[in-house]
């Protein structure tokens, strides 16, 4: 089964087509790497897949949902089935690590006790349980990235999208982060990672190279 089906997918910013006429299929359980030079459209494509941005035209089905037909009110519910790791992480710096991870669970209205329990489990998975009370500012770059991953997976998403998750990390931290993605992929989560360095991704099942918004031949 396909997790993602894009047909003639196009995203235009003013006059500039950041993603153009893109056809793409990613199967459930894939570990896909999206590479390409800076400005090739990796972030834009991930934003489209994560329902952060609306396509300008074309078709896009994610996790069985037709994103172009989806109404505004249905959008939040689709987003809850996805795990997003943003290029700039978007951690909340005035909250503890635990509260950052709890946010998606608070949003779906889980009882506080259950939310805390599951948030701790997610922190444990990324090796940050001892730092649950720490503010993100007190964490290292690698720890911040793992915190962002914990927040992305706490909802047990079927699709995990990560935008250059190792860009600012040293080799050791990068390896730790990528091992985490591999571990989630092993238990059946479809993982899509945008990266400058596709060769570092462990066991990719798909390699997609973007060039000026298109898939490079």
């Amino acid at each position: 089964m396909n997790m993602i089906v894009a047909t003639r997918l196009t995203k235009r910013y003013d006059a500039y087509e950041a993603v153009r006429d893109l056809n793409l299929e990613i199967a459930s359980g894939d570990m896909a790497a999206i590479s390409g030079h800076s400005g090739a459209g990796k972030t834009t494509l991930l934003k489209l897949l994560g329902a952060v941005e609306r396509p300008t035209s074309g078709g896009l089905i994610v996790n069985g949902q037709n994103l172009l037909a989806l109404g505004r009110r249905a959008l939040p519910y689709l987003r809850r089935s996805l795990g997003l790791v943003f290029q700039d992480q978007k951690l909340l710096f005035d909250r503890s690590a635990l509260d950052n991870v709890r946010l998606p669970l608070d949003i779906i209205g889980l009882p506080p006790r259950e939310a805390s329990r599951r948030a701790r489990a997610a922190l444990d998975k990324v090796g940050l349980l001892e730092r649950e009370k720490a503010r993100p500012i007190a964490l290292s770059g690698g720890e911040q990235q793992r915190l962002a991953i914990a927040r992305a997976v706490v909802n047990r998403p079927t699709l995990l999208l990560a935008d250059e998750p190792t860009a600012n990390l040293d080799a050791d931290a990068a390896r730790q982060v990528l091992e985490l993605f591999a571990a989630f992929n092993q238990v059946g989560v479809t993982v899509v990672i945008a990266t400058h360095a596709p060769q570092t991704i462990p066991h990719p099942t798909r390699l997609i190279v973007l060039d000026h918004g298109r898939i490079a031949p």
Partner: peptide, 16 residues
């Protein structure tokens, strides 16, 4: 602002 943006991105409804 930051919290609202993140919440929206990870599935918060307008009501939330």
């Amino acid at each position: 602002q930051a919290e609202i943006e993140v919440a929206r991105l990870i599935g918060a409804t307008t009501a939330f």
